[in-house]
């Protein structure tokens, strides 16, 4: 009762998504503040080794549904099982990744439980909430997310109903081992206690996935381009600079939409979150949407023709000039240094 629950996102190879580990760590932190336990739910197939993988994150109770028909994910099977379990255990809060699966599942589950859900959170906190009538609710989950095209940060609460539910963007929270020898309890559930034929009406015909083509999330140096880069050709300069710095090339939505660079390079609220030591922003105005994905970077260099670009206000170093003038100078410098 009144625990924090994390839905573990598990793929066909029984691998757990990074975001699930990030949420376990956040969930542990919240559960310690609330003085409750951390529970995790694994719905999938061939889940033999799963307890060893998640227990070090401080999981007190691991619920397992292990059946071949639970992979690949379908909305109806996973929502049915999760809701049945949640109704039994009556948690305080339920956390999921804001991934393709979490964004499909969480709203269905919230509607089935008639409770509130906040999408794409970037932070979660425990605090008291006082409504407009002066009524105070103790220790509610503050769900913080960007709003209005990322021009504002909103704090959403769900004061009356339980569980409180949130999806959280991947990469914004850090996975931390709580105790390598932590031993929680494992509870295996019979999926067919709840599943009926009506939950099996969707057939997955095929899945095509490709491995990520870049290592932006882990990169120490990111050279990112925005609309101000101006052309696909100029993006070649960014790539050359990134290679010399042993870094990766990133982009804003404007640049990926223009077709200058692959979409999986997009940094920002709806793309990747990066934390490099060095971030070189080329022709990036600094829309909040993009900045939310790079604001934890170490040193930020902004190259822009507009000296008033918002990006210049968060940068450590600003160069006012054209990409095609500045980048070759940087490239030359590095080539001479390496020679």
């Amino acid at each position: 009762m009144n625990n924090i629950v994390v839905y573990l996102e598990i793929d066909k190879q029984a691998r757990i998504a990074d975001v699930s580990f990030e949420l376990l760590s956040k969930g542990k932190e919240l559960s310690m503040q609330l003085g409750c336990q951390l529970e995790a739910v694994a719905i999938g197939s061939a889940l033999e080794g799963i307890a060893e993988k998640v227990m070090p994150y401080g999981v007190d109770l691991l619920h397992i549904f292990d059946e071949a028909c639970l992979v690949p994910y379908t909305t109806l099977t996973h929502s049915k099982l999760l809701v049945a379990l949640l109704k039994e255990i009556c948690p305080n809060s339920v956390l999921m990744g804001a991934t393709a699966v979490g964004r499909d599942l969480a709203p269905r589950v919230a509607a089935m439980l008639q409770t509130g859900l906040t999408a794409h959170c970037s932070d979660l906190r425990i605090a008291d909430y006082t409504d407009n009538n002066g009524k105070t609710y103790k220790a509610v989950l503050e769900q913080i997310r960007p709003a209005f095209g990322d021009k504002a940060m909103t704090t959403i609460v769900c004061p009356e109903r339980r569980p409180q539910m949130a999806t959280v963007s991947a990469g914004v929270m850090k996975p931390v081992i709580f105790d390598a020898n932590y031993k929680g309890e494992v509870i295996r559930h019979d999926a067919f206690k709840w599943l009926t034929d009506a939950d099996m009406v969707v057939t997955i015909l095929s899945q095509t996935t490709k491995a990520a083509t870049n290592h932006l999330k882990e990169a120490n140096v990111v050279v990112a381009g925005g609309y101000g880069v101006g052309s696909k050709k100029n993006f070649e300069l960014l790539k050359e600079l990134a290679v010399l710095l042993h870094g990766e090339v990133g982009a804003t939505r404007a640049a990926t939409d223009a077709g200058w660079i692959e979409e999986d390079c997009m940094i920002g609220q709806t793309g990747l979150t990066v934390r490099p030591n060095l971030y070189i922003a080329c022709g990036i105005s600094g829309q909040a949407q993009h900045v939310s994905g790079m604001q934890e970077s170490g040193i930020v260099v902004s190259i822009n023709t507009d000296s008033d670009a918002p990006m210049n206000k968060i940068a450590d170093y600003v160069i006012v000039g054209k990409i095609e003038d500045i980048l070759p100078k940087m490239i030359n410098c590095l080539k001479q240094k390496n020679a």
């Binding site: 021009k151 704090t155 959403i156 968060i314 006012v320 500045i326």
Partner: peptide, 22 residues
Amino acid sequence: PTRVANMKPLAWQAKEAQQIEP
């Protein structure tokens, strides 16, 4: 069930950027 507890415009922390001559 949800309530907006508060909303803050995103104002970036002002810090002095160093200008580099191009």
